[in-house]
Amino acid sequence: MEEVLFFIAAIGALGGAIGVIAMRNPFYSVLALIVHLFSLAALFLLLTSAFVAAAQVVVYAGAVMVLYVFVVAYVGGGGESAWEPIPGQRFLAPLLGIALFIELAVAVLSSSLLALGEDGPHVQAGFGDPAAIGRLLLEKFLLPFEASSILLLLAAVGAIVLASNRRQENA
């Protein structure tokens, strides 16, 4: 049962990822990324991390993707130009991608981590639920938590400054 769920979610994640890079229209790319994110949330649930899966669906597939859809609708899904500045980019790029995957796979499978081939240790019922993650975030990792909140504030202010309409002083 677990294997079936894993392969369904893995096919969804991989298909979504390929859809993101294969679609000509950016709007369809965003929709493919939403499929990818939901499949990843299912994979997180298989790894018994309920809070990360919920945050994935709520934050990513909910909030961030809405932002993407708004910007795609504002900018408009223009087609890409056929001009190729680097000769043979269409052939070289897949070779480099495959080489990167082979390199990563070799690095993982030849590592000396013995626990990699096992199911992982047995964990008790509360593993990865919001209470456990919240306790870790607010006790052990309080400083990274606060730093990330300041970073979010800075990013929001920066986005307002970047996207605000200041045409008159530029002209």
Binding site: L14, A17, A93, F101
Partner: peptide, 13 residues
Amino acid sequence: ALLFATGALGILL
């Protein structure tokens, strides 16, 4: 690793 390589391929293409 496969998903990471797919993302890198998209950035190259």
